[in-house]
Design a protein around this nucleic acid. Sequence first.
RNA 1: GCCCACGUAGCUCAGGUGGUAGAGCAUCGCCUUGGUAAGGCGAAGGUCCCCGGUUCGAAUCCGGGCGUGGGCUCCA
Length: 587
Amino acid sequence: MGEYGDHESTEDPVHVLRHSTAHLLAAAVTELHPDARYGIGPPVEDGFYYDFAFSRPITEADLAPIESRMRRIAQEDRPFVHETMTREQALAEFRKRGQDYKIELINDKVEGDEVSVYRTGEFLDLCRGPHVKSTKELKAFKLLRVAGAYWRGDEKQPQLTRIYGTAWSSQKELDEHMKFLEEAEKRDHKKLGRELKLFTVDERVGAGLPLWLPAGATIRRELERFIVDEELSRGYLHVRTPDVARLDLYRQSGHLQLYGENMYPPMRFEDGEELELRPVNCPHHIVVYQSELRSYRDLPMRIAEIGNNWRYERSGTLIGLNRVRAFALNDAHIFCTPDQLMGEVKGAIDLALYFSDVLGIDEFSYRLSARDDVKDKWLGTEEQWDRAQAALVEALESMGQKYHLGVGEAAFYGPKIDFQVKDAHRREFTNSTVQVDFQLPERFDLEYVAEDGSRQRPVMVHRGAAGSMERLFSYLIERYVGAFPTWLHPVQVVVIPITDAQIEYARVIEARLRKAKLRVEVDDRPERMQRKIRDAQARKVPYMTIAGAREAEAQHVNVRDRGGNQTDEALDEFVQRVAHEVAEKRR
RNA sequence: GCCCACGUAGCUCAGGUGGUAGAGCAUCGCCUUGGUAAGGCGAAGGUCCCCGGUUCGAAUCCGGGCGUGGGCUCCA
């Protein structure tokens, strides 16, 4: 492909191999479909892709013949030959082949008169390289799927057919990767959500509008209690505000103008009233701030709410619980003086880290989301943006945290620190976020009375410390593969009487656990113990207590945990042990 | 929104080149009271996603929707 694209060229042997496999794919495709035009084909994580314009629609059924042709070419031991042409020569070559996408790339991307190309037999590609020596080195690869992709990532450009593949330096690694893909399927939160009856979606309710079932709602309640309690202890003020507001509120905030395409159409009433489902909570919290005149003594003021947000995401972007049209954000808006800004940013990061630690979010990266240079996408002055970004960078660096830059990923009112997590399929999502905002305070004319009696403008920090409940939940489902820590699990203990004669004792166990505020079920179905164990195991219940005649006699429980370990202990001891584990939120 | 695929019982899936469908699990009933991952027998359960069209006849063919999955674009 064109390393004339925006990809960094790399000498990493696996990248080279994947890049070469992309060329191999394009060579096979152009042999089988001579009128196909090729776009770009870089290496990516775990593999490669190549984009083509075909004269007829290509489906996954077309992949097998393409893959066999690739293997044939690989065996032919064709060398990858590097050549340098003049611009005119290169343009002529690609014109001869009808490859207008390559011509466009040469015209737009190549500087100077030298053009670097690679030949693989008949196949010629604009490419900086490097490549493997011969197609013979390409042995462990597999085509995975076809997808649509806009030429040069632009919605207004034609859509090409992208073929994705995976490539490794050995068959063993390829096998392992295929195994990983299979495992990812099993960990998928959509699958587990159904199996464990955590949530459901139903087209009668609508796309992207999940329903939390009792088991899922129990976990959410625990999460919310934990989050709210922790925030209260850190000086946050929790509020409750409505899910709708007058449309004008979003004109004032700028959301209607800059975020409007994601908003639900307003509800219009006969008397002229226009109400809007809120896409964000900030304006409501600003109104809370403005409900009375604030003094510098009130600041920082940390207004928090697990607030429902409504965003009409485009249908094709919805993904399970990760991308929905109604979600509850663990949100807060901190109003502070410029002097307090740094401390508040650090405090927000610290809280997000604390939540991550307790919840087991142990793999994430920081993305510093900055603006790009598209002028009408952002509010405010360059100076304000620089100041805001400097605050975020300083906070991260003083905490010794590494980050990468996300150009164009900022909110319209300011830069952000995003905590990026990956789902089972290694797709990246933002969970926690911390944002510095000088714009909304201006647009809403926010003020506080300073020590000298003057009116001053506060700074706002927007932060979602635990992300949205939906996205957080999907992460946790996949993180624990449904085997949630005891404090979160919908059913902490299942009591299994061996025969009906022990149902009475099972009820005693149940009552004792319940009194300790534990969630317990007695499995009194007319089934065999083995069956009940199997079912509890499938639900990943942390503890089973087997109650037989011996246990009833001794007021003991025979405990089996979901790892299969068995112990025999006094009932009171067991109750205390589990209650303790729950109180500690052990994982 | 766009590209590709898919939509059959609550779930996982067979089947059907046009003559209204089947398994396992789950559910319900009966029998079984069993010491650490599926006891037995039986019953019930489907407008084959929806709406049009073609046809004597559509779950099957055609068109349009809706939904799901994977990508692109966009984002908690």
